[in-house]
Design a protein around this nucleic acid. Sequence first.
DNA 1: ATCTTTTTATTATATTATGATACGGTACAC
DNA 2: GTGTACCGTATCATAATATAATAAAAAGAT
Lengths: 255, 255
Amino acid sequence: MTKQKQDTLFVGSLEKGMRVLSAFGERHRALGLTEIAALTGLDRSAVQRLANTLHKTGYLNKDPETRRYSPSLKFLELGNAYLWSDPLVQLAMPKLIELGRKLGERVNVARLDGDQIVYVIRIPTQLTSFGAMIAGRRLSALTTSSGRAMIACLSAAERKHAAETWPLTALTLKTTLDRAKIAATIEEAAACGYGLTVSENILNEIGIAAPILAADGRPVAAVQCSVSSMKWSIEKVRSGIAPHLIEVANSIQLS
Amino acid sequence: MTKQKQDTLFVGSLEKGMRVLSAFGERHRALGLTEIAALTGLDRSAVQRLANTLHKTGYLNKDPETRRYSPSLKFLELGNAYLWSDPLVQLAMPKLIELGRKLGERVNVARLDGDQIVYVIRIPTQLTSFGAMIAGRRLSALTTSSGRAMIACLSAAERKHAAETWPLTALTLKTTLDRAKIAATIEEAAACGYGLTVSENILNEIGIAAPILAADGRPVAAVQCSVSSMKWSIEKVRSGIAPHLIEVANSIQLS
DNA sequence: ATCTTTTTATTATATTATGATACGGTACAC
DNA sequence: GTGTACCGTATCATAATATAATAAAAAGAT
């Protein structure tokens, strides 16, 4: 069998290194070499070299006692670089701070990325789960209010396709995995202009979101608010929160 | 001259790739190949391969019109991984949210990293400059209230050394670069237990910070608050803000 | 229209990264 | 206390990769 032709514009060692970086996250805060090898599918010798290189360049900390690696502050600096480069974040951040003060509730902005959303702005005005306090979390679009608000702005065929094929992730026991139900909530969102979830991401939490559209009408992000269902009813959220989200979402004009 | 012995545990291509990643930031939000080559000192062919690889693995976006690269959401996800891995952030975040509500002012946590600080928590309860709204920014320790609060907890010899040799970065025209003055403010911080800056990071802003110590007494982080000098006097900040910061800082116990 | 700069694409070859493996250290089971 | 299992560290011959030089294409500036 002849040798596969080399893709001379692709650096294999760099791709392997990035796989090591992306092994860390919510469920993997510190990892040993063998764990990294298992998570990335890479050879243990390769992981030894890659982890050592990332450590020497300051990207990974190494605990001298446990010999396990963890992300360094340079990870956070990369996150900072993203926030500087995203015009949406720069436009939206001041408006979200004002909105947080006005509503007194948690407000966020999420971007659509394929069939998932990523939270790019978090204004945690109240206590909540740690994952909901920090930026950068990635979740399935179908099971979040932000995702539903954005999917609602796609064409009917695209909405149908999304409801039928996009992945589902249960975050609570109340997360619905019934695709017909999800399709119905998306159609409802299309009708009223905002998406809703109740206890699907956090128990006793109502999530409501309004879409932010690009100049060509495509949904790219959503302004979202999370409130306690102990404090708010769905009716009150519809009348007292939704209009503010829609107003802010509409005020964010992307070129 | 004989060839230098290869460090077989170091992957040179990965190190080069990380240099490309770290070229992006506040002043470099989108970059072309030639710009990346200039910033990183790498050969243009190497940059082409590395940038192409980072694009194909989803870390860099490429604008098809301008052909310039920019950080993708995966950068922010790496930032998210850092926040999950830092026990200080998990301990401090709920307390900072409560503190922000109580004070009604912007509160932050910064970590000491060598002779610089990096903001790991941002609770932007009020409008401010964009850089002060987002986590991950790195600044010189000497010219920030957080940095001064932490340096104040070092030994007298270490404080002197820091004041004399650590780098200075002017952020405003009011940023003092007078090392004797800085040394004096650090000694004052050592005496009263918190660090202060006035208009040195943002004009018309008073910054005040209390140190967070590790179990061995070393300063590792600081709880910081920023207020408008139009609204607060230094006296009011000393009596109305400092005690709360010290209380929160002392309540964060790192193992 | 012309010139300059940047990006893209290709290639011979030097250099690097690979993965197999031996060894040391630690944890665990008995 | 002993033996075994597992993980991390260190080494090396060699295959494969990444290099950098360079030509061509495309875009930008004048």
